[in-house]
Amino acid sequence: MRGRGRGRAVAVTAALVALSGCTAQAVDQGAGRSPGPVEATRTAPAPPPAGGTDDRPAAPAHEPRSPERPERTRRTQPPSPPRVLWSRGDEGRDVRELQARLRQVAWLFDGPTGTYDATTEEAVKGFQGRRGLPRTGRLDTVTWRRLLGMTREPGRWELYLMGGQPADAPDARCLTGRVLCVSKESRTLRWMVDGRTLLTVPVRFGSQYTPTREGVFQVYWKSRDHVSTLYDTPMPYAMFFSGGQAVHYSADFAARGYAGASHGCVNVRDEAAIADLFAQVETGDKVVVHW
């Protein structure tokens, strides 16, 4: 009886071990069975739902821009300043035209001289300031357009009102020998030797009541510090060629330009030039006065 009881106990123990699953055997994971303790620790991730997609939110590839972040404003380049055409120190025919147009609108009263000097710079500043433009004193494209719209094309007389005109071609009678070649048309005097021009200066002449004579003459007398006995006026560096008419320096011409006139003489306004000319010209040299 004792042996039969022991055998029955062994059988009961084996049955309990089999029911607990604590064996090395593979566990059947058929439908309707729950996994054992070991299986629970090795459970695979849940499969995607029917439909084949994972509806969990994906991690963003980069940080999204906050809707509260303001948009950057686009920077605009400031407008470039207008191009400068002429400024102080420039010379030439274009500057002469600028000065003539400034005279037309009463911003300049001297010249034209053809040189962009301090007086011209101040006149440009005044014109700019009156029209709300930057007072630079430099003639830029904007200022020039405004001035063109208010003025007319200056004629030859206006362009050379103060400083004399470009010398025209010399008269044929001036091409030989030593000659003071005086042109009434261009209001210039050339000092020429054997057809070569050594010096050119602007000159003015007598009025319609005291005209300068035309023709071919000779220097017959030179007087360095001459004073007119008829008009009691100084005539420095006088070189007489026809009666009381002479080529000489005129302080009035230097001050007033072509607003005045001589009493028949050929006036020179450049004192340094006439002094140099006086030293070179000799008695007997030819004088040609022509149109």
Rank of each mutant, 00 (worst) to 15 (best):
M1F: 11
G5L: 15
G5M: 08
G7I: 15
R8T: 10
A9N: 12
V10H: 07
A11Q: 05
V12Y: 04
T13L: 14
V17L: 00
A18I: 03
A18W: 04
L19H: 06
A26N: 10
Q29K: 07
G30S: 13
A31N: 13
S34Y: 15
G36Q: 06
V38Q: 06
A40T: 10
A44Y: 11
A44T: 07
A46S: 06
P47R: 09
P49I: 12
G52S: 08
G52M: 08
D55M: 13
A58N: 08
A61Q: 13
P64R: 14
S66A: 10
P70M: 03
P70F: 00
R75G: 13
Q77K: 10
Q77Y: 05
P82M: 11
L85P: 01
L85F: 05
W86F: 14
R88E: 01
G89I: 15
D94V: 10
R96M: 07
E97W: 12
Q99G: 11
L102P: 10
R103S: 06
F109M: 10
T113L: 03
Y116G: 04
T120A: 03
A123R: 02
A123F: 01
V124Q: 09
G126V: 14
R131P: 06
R131S: 07
L133V: 07
P134K: 00
T136H: 02
L139W: 09
L139T: 14
L139E: 12
T141M: 04
W144R: 07
L147D: 01
L147M: 02
L148G: 05
G149P: 00
E158D: 04
G164K: 05
G164D: 14
G164A: 08
Q165E: 12
Q165M: 14
Q165P: 14
P166T: 12
P166Y: 02
P166R: 05
D171W: 09
A172S: 08
C174G: 13
C174R: 08
L175S: 11
L175C: 05
L175K: 09
L175D: 08
T176K: 07
R178N: 05
S186N: 09
V193A: 06
V193G: 09
R196G: 04
T197S: 07
L199S: 08
P202A: 09
R204A: 09
F205P: 02
G206P: 00
G206I: 01
S207L: 05
T210P: 02
T210Y: 04
R213Y: 10
G215T: 00
G215H: 02
V216Q: 15
F217A: 00
F217D: 01
Y220I: 07
Y220H: 05
T229G: 14
L230W: 04
Y231D: 11
P236A: 12
P236D: 13
A238Y: 04
F240G: 03
F240P: 01
F240Q: 04
V247E: 03
Y249A: 14
S250L: 02
S250G: 03
R256D: 07
A259E: 15
V266F: 01
V266C: 04
R269W: 13
A272E: 15
A272Y: 13
A273W: 11
A275G: 05
A279C: 14
V281S: 09
E282W: 06
H290Q: 00
H290T: 00
